[in-house]
């Protein structure tokens, strides 16, 4: 019974469309215009090399070198030949350094606990066009990281592909105090 009732309703509904009544729909149909938001960029565009500081200490009890996180009392970071300071007197051990997008060598000065060091990053750049709203981003592939050795002992490339800012691409190992 219920099925037949529904069928009758459907029939009535479909009959509405019949014949010349459709003309009314044709003439008065509202224009459905979809609005696409093509002015805002919803993609991440900031790409930088993530670094993390470590320190190697000799543990007398263990009689072995132990690696631990190194957070300087004060660290200032800026690019060589650049007046703009990236980090000023920070007390942190994780930083994002923007590599050069137009050249393949980027150099940064790290002034930590009164000592200057410079790291030189050799990298290849790849242009990536995203969209008209977002423009483009430049991804990098790190080939080598060479530090000066005032306080930095060594540098290790963990993730060579720099495509975002949420990763530790390079680890810097400081000498023990």
């Amino acid at each position: 019974m219920l099925l037949r009732k529904n069928e009758n309703r459907l029939t009535k509904l479909l009959n509405i469309f019949e014949m010349r009544k459709l003309l009314i729909l044709v003439v008065f149909v509202p224009l459905l215009i979809a609005c696409n938001n093509d002015t805002e960029c919803c993609q991440e565009r900031y790409v930088a090399m993530g670094i993390k500081l470590f320190q190697t200490k000799f543990d007398a009890d263990e009689e072995a070198y132990v690696v631990s996180d190194f957070t300087p009392d004060s660290i200032t970071i800026y690019g060589v030949d650049n007046d703009s300071i990236l980090y000023y007197k920070k007390q942190n051990n994780v930083f994002d350094l923007p590599l050069r997008k137009t050249e393949t060598i980027s150099r940064f000065v790290l002034y930590a606990n009164g000592y200057y060091d410079t790291i030189t990053v050799f990298h290849e750049n790849t242009d990536n066009y995203l969209s008209m709203e977002c423009g483009c981003v430049v991804f990098a592939n790190i080939k080598a990281v060479i530090p000066t050795n005032n306080r930095i002992d060594s540098a290790i490339i963990r993730i060579p592909e720099v495509v975002n800012v949420s990763a530790t691409h390079v680890e810097l190992y400081y000498k023990a105090d």
Binding site: P98, R100, K101, D127, Y129, G135
Partner: peptide
């Protein structure tokens, strides 16, 4: 596609990108 510019805000340089 033309007019795409690679802007390097921190290093203060830019260059056109070829697509």
């Amino acid at each position: 596609l033309d007019g795409v510019i690679v802007n390097d805000d921190y290093w203060g340089v830019s260059r056109p990108m070829e697509v």
